[in-house]
Design a protein around this nucleic acid. Structure first.
Lengths: 160, 160
DNA sequence: AGCATTTGCAAAATATTCTTCGGTTCAAAA
DNA sequence: TTTTGAACCGAAGAATATTTTGCAAATGCT
């Protein structure tokens, strides 16, 4: 067996807190869940080793970094076969402005999440690096005007 | 003046590293950027106080939590006026399964990111809590089949 | 039930890390 | 040249993380 994964109420509390604040000290975390530091740390380590906690990240303010354009793009490929898909993925995997790529059901084949400095550099990126891929059939951009919710916290359901 | 914000090459290194690993110790971070711990911490604090670093989060494995369904939903409202938009936002703001909501250009008015345990609970959520909002005109769900890229790291451009 | 085993926890000791405080260098401006 | 300020370093003290030990309750087995 690789890893046992029983999540109890205390673990769920921990997960909720660490999603909201990944940099909380173990001491404060233990206070909030009503345990002493030692077993608290033990639980966190177990959650990390089991893979339930995948990683920790700093979230930046993209506007302050000069990344003013934020979009979703629906991509359709000319053929939906495996080699085409793999070609597409390998072409976009190195483009750091493309921060998400999901294979989806529905009208398009993929949906991308892209950030860019401005419309000009966004256009350049799309023309030179995405439209350029010859198996790309159609692109539909959705520019984000404003974001009302952007939670880094996923609900943690009771597993029953 | 609120906060001065000059980002140099070292700051960009720090931002890149903290995006990838929000829990790195200040000691290791200082090693990686070639500085001693003291000025490293000073820079991190400055980036936090300026708002460039907004927060830190643990990233969880949603599949391991039993959240097997992951979707994007395009939402069109019946009227695009301000009261309608505000009504819509207030209705969805409390739904924790809706983890993102963006106002967008294009065919729809909003795009949502939703997580659910399974198709049944997803359907229930959509029917009872989203379709139910009477100013919602149309919904188009895109179910994520697989995710090829899900970077928590935004490119940090040189500001020139 | 009775015994052994496991699990979860707390307290204390140790190790690591953070954080602050002078002191130094360096470059730009007066 | 002198001054000023910014950025850095090293060391010391404070806070934190981590390990170890031992206890108690729950669990499993005969």
């Amino acid at each position: 067996m690789i890893g046992n994964t029983k999540i109890d109420k205390t673990d769920r509390k921990i997960l909720k807190i660490l999603q909201a604040n990944g940099k909380i000290t173990n001491a404060k975390l233990s206070e909030e869940i009503g345990l002493s530091p030692a077993p608290t740390l033990e639980r966190v380590k177990k959650l990390e080793n089991s893979g339930i906690i995948k990683s920790y990240h700093a979230e930046l303010d993209s506007a302050m970094l000069g990344l003013g354009v934020n979009t979703f793009v629906q991509v359709s490929l000319k053929g939906h076969n495996k080699p085409n898909i793999e070609t597409f993925l390998s072409r976009i995997s190195d483009i750091e402005e493309i921060i998400e790529c999901h294979h989806i059901t529905g009208s398009g084949d993929f949906i991308l999440r892209i950030v860019a400095k401005d419309i000009a550099s966004y256009q350049q990126l799309m023309l030179e690096k995405v439209s350029d891929i010859d198996i790309v059939d159609s692109l539909q951009s959705m520019v984000i005007l404003s974001t009302f919710k952007n939670s880094k916290e996923v609900p943690v359901p009771a597993d029953n």
